[in-house]
């Protein structure tokens, strides 16, 4: 998946500069290190995903890039502007969709968009044009005069995405954009995002802890404990963990894990299974069962997916943490005015 219709960001002599450049970025809260030294860059038109569990430092990083938080050390440039010295320029060139809903639900969809358009300095003509356009992009044109309080969670989310695109930002930040939504609505949201990328050529930076959602990115950074533990395309990440993964369920997972590791395999323990990363998984099954020495209750050989990639690099399953994040969001979305 290559970058489509990239938006050139010009600096100096018109050379292309990265949409996001981050170097040695750190953020401490007292003795807690939320972000422990991030370095990466995102090219114009690219879709870039931060994949990691709750508390990995994803939102803190986004807050710094969006000028809502100050880095403790390190540099970050967004759309060519330094986030510390030129926060105003950064803000003018980014669109933001936060985890929590940030609409005024006592206003109509159109009023919410108009509010945003005025604050971002669009003149009357641009305002009309862009409001119509973004409403069309997320297919909410017919609901424009309705109060947001009458919207479902998914519609509100799509309206927020539309709003974030209103001022034609160079970079669109999506912080867990589908959290708390049902699977059908989630896929609708991703359709919208895909439309935006194709039709507006915006660079997209997203965070998620849903594996299947990270798949839509050109590149994924796996982030854990405030550090990037792996960064590559989804395909190459999957390839990097080995050709196959073998999932084993045994009567005694910890004992089986040490036996398998002692035999020289890279293996990790998930919530209810062991995952072994290996070449030629099928031909290794007999060998693995022999190592464990009985007590194997099930074996499953498959091509690695992103869950396996995450387990491979962090030694933990991302799903273990996903539950918490989800219930937190249900609360945040639950009480609407």
């Amino acid at each position: 998946m290559s970058a489509v219709n990239p938006r050139p960001v010009e600096r100096g002599g018109g050379a292309l500069v990265p949409s996001i450049e981050v170097e040695g970025l750190e953020k401490h809260f007292g003795s807690l290190v939320a972000v422990g030294g991030l370095t990466f860059s995102v090219q114009p038109g690219e879709v870039f995903a931060f994949l990691g569990p709750n508390g990995a430092g994803k939102s803190t990083s986004i807050n710094i890039l969006c000028t809502l938080a100050m880095p403790t050390s390190g540099k970050a440039r967004v759309a060519g502007f330094d986030v510390v010295t030129h926060p105003g320029d950064v803000r003018r060139h980014i669109g933001l969709v936060f985890q929590e809903e940030t609409l005024d639900d006592q206003l109509t969809a159109e009023e919410n968009l108009r509010f945003h358009a005025v604050l971002y300095g669009l003149d009357k003509v641009q305002r009309k044009e862009r409001i119509a356009r973004v409403l069309e992009l997320v297919q909410l044109t017919e609901r424009s005069a309705d109060l947001v309080s009458t919207f479902s969670g998914g519609m509100a989310r799509r309206l927020e995405i539309a709003r974030a695109m209103l001022h034609t930002p160079a970079v669109l930040f999506l912080d867990e954009p589908t959290i708390g939504l049902d699977p059908q609505t989630r896929s609708l949201v991703w359709d919208d995002v895909d439309t935006l990328r194709r039709e507006e050529g915006v660079t997209i930076f997203l965070t998620t802890h849903y594996m299947e959602e990270a798949e839509i990115a050109n590149r994924i950074a796996i982030i854990d404990h405030g550090l990037i533990v792996a960064l590559d395309t989804p395909e190459r990440l999957k390839a990097s963990v080995g050709a196959d993964t073998v999932d084993l369920q045994t009567n005694d997972n910890p004992a089986a894990l040490s036996a398998i590791r002692a035999a020289g395999f890279h293996a990790e323990q998930g919530a209810d299974k062991l995952t072994v990363f290996t070449e030629n998984g099928e031909s290794q099954v007999a060998h693995l069962v022999e190592i464990v020495g009985g007590g194997v209750t099930s074996v499953h050989v498959h091509r690695p997916n992103l869950d396996d990639v995450f387990l491979h690099f962090t030694g933990r399953e991302i799903r273990e943490q996903a539950g918490e994040a989800h219930s937190g969001m249900v609360r945040a979305w639950g009480h609407r005015r």
Binding site: C66, T67, L68, G88, D89, R91, R92, L96, F98, E100, E101, T102, L103, D104, D105, H116, L119, Y120, G121, R163, R336, R337
Partner: peptide, 17 residues
Amino acid sequence: VWDREFGFLREMLVAPV
């Protein structure tokens, strides 16, 4: 305080104004 509780304050605070 309501705007903060329900997120709309963030929409205002990130605006380039």
